[in-house]
Design a binder for these strands. Sequence first.
DNA 1: GACATCCGCAACCTCCTAGTTGCGGATTGT
DNA 2: ACAATCCGCAACTAGGAGGTTGCGGATGTC
Lengths: 112, 112
Amino acid sequence: MSMQLEASHARVFAALGDETRLAVLARLCEGDPQSISRLTAGTRLTRQAVTKHLRVLSDAGMVHSMRIGRESRYQLQPKPLEDVRDYLAEISRRWDDALGRLKAHVEGLEGS
Amino acid sequence: MSMQLEASHARVFAALGDETRLAVLARLCEGDPQSISRLTAGTRLTRQAVTKHLRVLSDAGMVHSMRIGRESRYQLQPKPLEDVRDYLAEISRRWDDALGRLKAHVEGLEGS
DNA sequence: GACATCCGCAACCTCCTAGTTGCGGATTGT
DNA sequence: ACAATCCGCAACTAGGAGGTTGCGGATGTC
């Protein structure tokens, strides 16, 4: 079905709906967990702002943090991303199917 | 590269980050253009609220409206959806690649 | 011990979002 | 002509998002 849990999907999409967070996710795609200060470097924002963005991503289940010494390193958590990716794929599929049915219907009318 | 235009992607994601708009999109996937009142029926919201949501979707380029008589019918516009779908697919791919590299590196260390 | 880093908490501000209500114009139906 | 329907515009409210600053605690470095 994959159309359940739209609240969860909306949450993930909302977390993706910000340029800064997209940039953070892109950097986290490199693999190794990165600290907040390291993620802040390269941005024009404050550390606190990045911290809040990471909080949003964490609440959406898209990142996971672990404390190592004095720094907390964030790592990507791919499952929510894969979920919404599949969700969008199914929406596209449904739309294509609907278009196909409509087209077939119109052609059927023309043929009669 | 597909990693340009992150602003546009963020806009589409933000438009997807709301349960009501996800429901509207799901109904628009059925194919035929639907009027605002028809989309409002089935929701607990006001027509104006739905109008605003449609405005957000339209600004993101995800729907297209055409006026027919006294009603304006909205239709899905699949290209932005397909764009962000591919964007998410590439993020997943990059993450998998990074994990593969890290795993290979660790195994290389163990083997030496 | 002294100092620099890294971080979390809290307060504050500004702006946008989601939603409502009221009103008036345009279109359709009888 | 009249009523009902569909819509757009404008004003208003409550609350959340994004961002900054200041402070203090914990950790690492010399």
